[in-house]
Amino acid sequence: MNAPIISLQGVHKYYGDHEPRLHVLRGIDLDVAEGEYVSITGTSGSGKSTLLNLLGCLDNTSEGAYLLAGKDVSCYSDDDLSKIRNEDIGFIFQSFNLIPQLTVFENVQVPLLYGSRSIADTTDLCYQVIEAVGLSERIEHRPTQLSGGECQRVAIARALINDPVLLLADEPTGNLDTSTGEEVLSLIENLHRQGRSVVMITHDPDVADRAQRRVDLRDGVIVEAGAS
């Protein structure tokens, strides 16, 4: 396998400065190789949301190191984390999280606004990613005019726009019916086949089993990790 794109080394996360602290993650070691497709499961309260936030660079670890593409981001500042989120991570959320007042095209453009590349040079790229998710016909539509599946595909296009090293999906099918969920999953799996590294958080065992590797989280520790 290639060098790990993600490497968590003895990661702890707790909330509160004083005892008793809420200890959510209790020593996580996890490597995800480049191009790998990993699912993380766990019941609510198992710490999977906290793990997602750490992986997505929305939060810092309390203890331990998080290496993303070789960079130790566990001690990055807020602005530096913003830059990492912008350039290296593509988020796919359960509730799509599109910005309602913007069109499909503009929603896809949003990450570009906060990056360093010029808008003019990336217009074609926007059309390309929108076409890749099959929404070329809907470019000027608002999220409210789209179905759930279409919204999630816009979100995927948005996640791809900055060519991230990691696609981070949080229950991507949670708000979708089975057939549209299937469409979205196959789209994500297609991206994996094209060489993207994907980490997917889910509580649905059927969805989790489709990944190359499944990581089960219980009470803040990994209890089962293996190829599925």
Partner: peptide, 16 residues
């Protein structure tokens, strides 16, 4: 608030 969270997740800094 939600929109702000989304923008932050997509890489908006506080300054943005």
């Amino acid at each position: 608030t939600k929109e702000i969270g989304v923008r932050r997740a997509l890489g908006a800094r506080r300054g943005h």
